[in-house]
Design a protein around this nucleic acid. Structure first.
Lengths: 246, 246
DNA sequence: GGCAATTTTGGTTACTCTTACTATAATTGA
DNA sequence: TCAATTATAGTAAGAGTAACCAAAATTGCC
C-alpha cells in the first residue's frame, strides 16, 4: 500500500519491524484450606536480569513449541501435578518491559504471554532440585517481583475473582473432597463477604452438582462436617449458561 | 539450571529459542440497526501470503510500538471513528500458523495478538483509498479468511456474546440514541431468543441507566418508540458487580 | 461427667424478582 | 375508517433471595 503510512518512515515496512523473543509466564494459584489462604507459586531467579528476585515461573518459547506447550513445560519443571486447569491470561508486549531489550543486541523486544493455572495443593508436589528456590507464597505476602510480574499477578488475581463468580473453578483448587465450609471460606477469602453461610449452603445444594459422600470430618470444636465431591456431569447443564454463583 | 531440561537439546537455551515477528489483528464488530445484522470489518489482502483473500485488519508491530498502539494504528488506517471500545482478545502463536514461516528465512515464527473492538456504524467512516478493499461483512456471510482468521473471528464472536450478558457493551455498538426495540433486537440477534420483550423492557428500565429523551421515532407501522440514551454514570453502581443482563 | 463454646445443618418467613400473559396506545397503509 | 403493527403498561402466580432462628453434634475445660 504505497504512500499512506502515517509514520516517520519508509514504506518497505520490514525496515522498522520489531523482532521479538516470546516468553510465557504462569500465574499458578492454589489454596491452603487448613490455613485458609490463597497461594501463588513463585520461583527465585538465578539468571541475569533480576538475579536473586522472585518471579512467576516462566520460560522463553522454543522453536517448534506452541505457547501452551511452553506453559506446560515450565509447569512440569516446577511441580508434579495430577490435574490442572490452565488457560491463557493476557499478553504483555510493550517496549521496555524487559531490561534485556536495552543491553542486548539491537532492537530485540521481549513479549510474554501469561497463563493462568489452578492446582490442588495436595496434588502438587514442588520439584526441589537443591538449586532453584521455589515456594508457595500467600498472596498477601508476595514481595516485589522481577520484570512486570506484579502486574501480571494482579491481572491473574482479577481473572480468578471473575471466574469464581460464574464458573466452577473453585473445585479446581479445592481438594477432591471438601466440606461446604471449605467452599464457603474459599469464596469469602477471595471475594470478600458476599452472602450468609446458611443461604450459600442451600443455594449450592439445590443446584445438585455437589454430592454428599456421607463421610464426616471434625476439625477442632463443633459438629463434624460432611465431605462433598463436585460432580462435573451434574454440572454440565449449567455449562456456558450465564449463571452466577455469588 | 544445568542438567534438567527434558528435551532433545543442549542446555544453552538460546540455541533453540524461536525468533518471532509479532502482529496484531482486530476483530471489529458493529451493528446495522436498520437491517438488524451483526457486522464485522474485513480487508482485502494485497500482499504475498493469501493475496486476494479477505482478512481481519492487522499489521506487524513496529519498533518502539506497543501492541495496543499497533492495534489503534491499523484501525485508524481503515476507519475514521469517534469512539471505540478496544480490548485484547487472545494470542495465537503456535508454529505453522503463517506460511511465511516455511518460506522465509530460517526459524522465524509469526505470532498474533488479537484485539476485540466495537464501533458505532454511523460514526465509523471507512477509509477508501481506491486500492484497498475494505467492507463491513454480515457475520453470517463471512467468507474463508486468510491465515487462521476465521478462528480468531470465532473467538471474538464468543467474547462478544459473553460480554453482552454481563456488561454494557451493547451501548458501544448501538447509536447514541436508540429505541428499546433496537436494544432488544441487538440482544436477540446475537444471543438468540432469550426473554419476553415486555419483561426485557421493564427489567432494563427499572435498573435506571436508560434515560428516555422523550423524542419519538416512527419506523414503518406501529406506535412510535421513544429514543433512549445510555447513562454511564447511572450505570456505575453495577460496574464490576456480577450482574446479568439476560 | 457436665457445661459452655463452637460449628454444621436444616429450616422459616417476608420480600423481591421473574415469567407468562393480557390490555391499551399510537401509528401506517389500504 | 379499519386492520395490522408496534410500543408501552400492567398483573398475578411462582420462583428465588435475604435475613433470620433453632437444633444437632462435636471439643475443651472445669
Amino acid at each position: 500500500m504505497p504512500g499512506r503510512t502515517p509514520r516517520k518512515s519508509t514504506d518497505s515496512a520490514s525496515a522498522q519491524l520489531a523482532d521479538f523473543k516470546v516468553g510465557v509466564d504462569n500465574v499458578i494459584f492454589s489454596v491452603d484450606t487448613a490455613q485458609n489462604r490463597l497461594l501463588v507459586l513463585l520461583v527465585m531467579r538465578h539468571e541475569d536480569p533480576f538475579v536473586g528476585q522472585w518471579s512467576l515461573p516462566g520460560t522463553l518459547v522454543r522453536q517448534g513449541e506452541s505457547l501452551e506447550d511452553a506453559a506446560y513445560r515450565v509447569l512440569s519443571e516446577k511441580i508434579r501435578v495430577e490435574n490442572l486447569y490452565l488457560e491463557q491470561l493476557y499478553t504483555f508486549g510493550g517496549p521496555n518491559r524487559d531490561p534485556r531489550e536495552a543491553t542486548h543486541s539491537f532492537g530485540i523486544r521481549y513479549l510474554t504471554v501469561s497463563y493462568f493455572a489452578l492446582v490442588r495443593l495436595a496434588e502438587a508436589e514442588l520439584i526441589a532440585d537443591g538449586v532453584s528456590g521455589i515456594a508457595w507464597y500467600p498472596l498477601k505476602q508476595v514481595p516485589p517481583l522481577a520484570f512486570d510480574h506484579n502486574q501480571i499477578l494482579e491481572y491473574g488475581y482479577r481473572r480468578l475473582r471473575n471466574k469464581l463468580e460464574y464458573s466452577p473453578v473453585a473445585f479446581e483448587v479445592l481438594p477432591e473432597l471438601f466440606t461446604l465450609s471449605d467452599l464457603y471460606q474459599l469464596y469469602t477469602t477471595i471475594l470478600g463477604e458476599f452472602s450468609d453461610y446458611s443461604n450459600f449452603r442451600s443455594r449450592l445444594l439445590k443446584l445438585g452438582f455437589l454430592h454428599d459422600t456421607g463421610v464426616k470430618v471434625s476439625r477442632g470444636a463443633g459438629r463434624p462436617a460432611s465431605l462433598y465431591r463436585f460432580d462435573a456431569e451434574a454440572f454440565a447443564p449449567y455449562k456456558d449458561k450465564p449463571m452466577v454463583f455469588i
